[in-house]
Design a protein around this nucleic acid. Sequence first.
RNA 1: GCCGCGUUGGUCAAUCGGUUAAGACGCAUCCCUUUCACGGAUGAAUGACGGGUUCGAUUCCCGUACGCGGUACCA
Length: 507
Amino acid sequence: MSQKIRVRFAPSPTGGLHLGGVRTVLYNYLFARGLGGKFILRIEDTDQSRFVPGAEDYIMDCLRWCGMEPDESPEAGGPFGPYRQSERKPSYRAFAEQLVQSGKAYYAFDTPAELEEMRNRFKTAENPTPQYDHHLRSKMRNSLSMGEDEVRRLIGEGVPYVIRIKMPADEVVSFTDMIRGEVRFNTGIVDDKVLLKQDGMPTYHLAVVVDDHAMEISHAFRGEEWLPSAPVHVLLWEYLGWKNSMPQFAHLPLILKPDGNGKLSKRDGDRLGFPVFAMNWSDPRTGDFTQGFRERGFLPEAFVNLLAMLGWNDGTGTELFSMEELISAFSMDRVHKGGAKFDFEKAKWFNHEWIKRSSADRLLPDVRQHLEAAGITANDDHYTKTVIDLVKERCTLLPDFAEQAGFFFNRPAPPDLQPLAAKWSPEKTTFFRELGPALATLQHWTAADIEACFKDLAQQHSLKVGELQLPLRLLLVGGKFGPAVFSIAATIGREETISRIGAFRMD
RNA sequence: GCCGCGUUGGUCAAUCGGUUAAGACGCAUCCCUUUCACGGAUGAAUGACGGGUUCGAUUCCCGUACGCGGUACCA
């Protein structure tokens, strides 16, 4: 057995990377990093009809954003290339032929139309979807049911064919899943999967095995939807003579939609108003646009954190983990068996926590970008960082900064003080007329001094400080929100403060 | 239909046979704060069902129900 830990994430470049995919990457990454292994990105582009331009770059960008750079990939290269299956095409055919020679696979000439005809012909109430299996293969056109000469003739004539695995009629295949323990299947109920397609490309089943072997993958993690075809893969490892280097498998639980049942899809996100992709994605063929967590205002730290907790925990109750902490705490045996419903409220909580615990330095570039997107210019980094520290605890998503901090950069529209009119008095009007001049004489422009000055003046007019704070806030902020008023005044500066107070008007 | 996997509050979940069945999100009430938050406190809310095994089952076994996944020349 190989001592080296080598894991891989093997997406097909057919579109955006969704939550489940990123979580699969993450578990691969954490496992590899925790054990000093290698994390490999391999592109499974064997279905030419589903190829989407840009998808591969998009996947790389997502990994980069999340902080999970592969050690080997199409982009970075590595000693086990190529890392795109389409570039390994010739070798698949050789292995498929080898299987035919050893009697573990066979040629099948059935056309798609014939397959459909077969499914219709054998369909019954008890068997609604007949499989191309040991029961039916003798009734089909393949090298098992036809004479050797005829097979040779058809191939000679260039009649298209596929190569199918010959599943044993009645054997038990079992393996130990790292999450589920021993899993067993009877080979008689699984169909003769196509290994090599008519176009010479392998199907996933052949390709994973050949590639995992070629790349010396030690552990294969993938979604639970692959479990039913695992016996085919196990058999392939055996038939190809590689049984003792077969990776350990772990089939990850699915991420389910928040309401109802079923796998989470991007449709659910659209329907319920939350992203399911890591980053924005627009399909170049259909023009379909899907929002990403990044653009919605999530920090990658939070995104990674929340994904990690969807199906795994360290057993202590801790929920906030940095990537480094995850790497040392993660273990495959604490991954859940059951699927988890995605909860966007909890996802937002993670982001809120990460915003609160991140420094203004860390937040600055992201915040500035979101401020600019809202038309707010923030040139002064020092000033912006002060503002960030003042408002970050009330921001759940990055765009909230625009709402929470806008008044630090742009003077708010003159506030409507009418709601205060009922409890107003001429003394209060006088107070606000005198406040500006009083502040102008302050020696030090600090929150504490501003507050002291404010209170002195209030006392001189025998007014309650509390009743004056809200109007001041309205003047400075333009609304009933934001950090402590005197801190705001201290931050926006003397001139600006006095100027905003000058807008006071109570008719 | 068949095969596989799963099932602890609304959601994420701890428990490796013995607990008043943790904790978190969300929700409700209260405190703090004459803003909004943060923070603190309290509360409501959970082992699908039926059989076993055991002195004792949420935990182990079997069955049922339910859910999901698969059943493609897609991954």
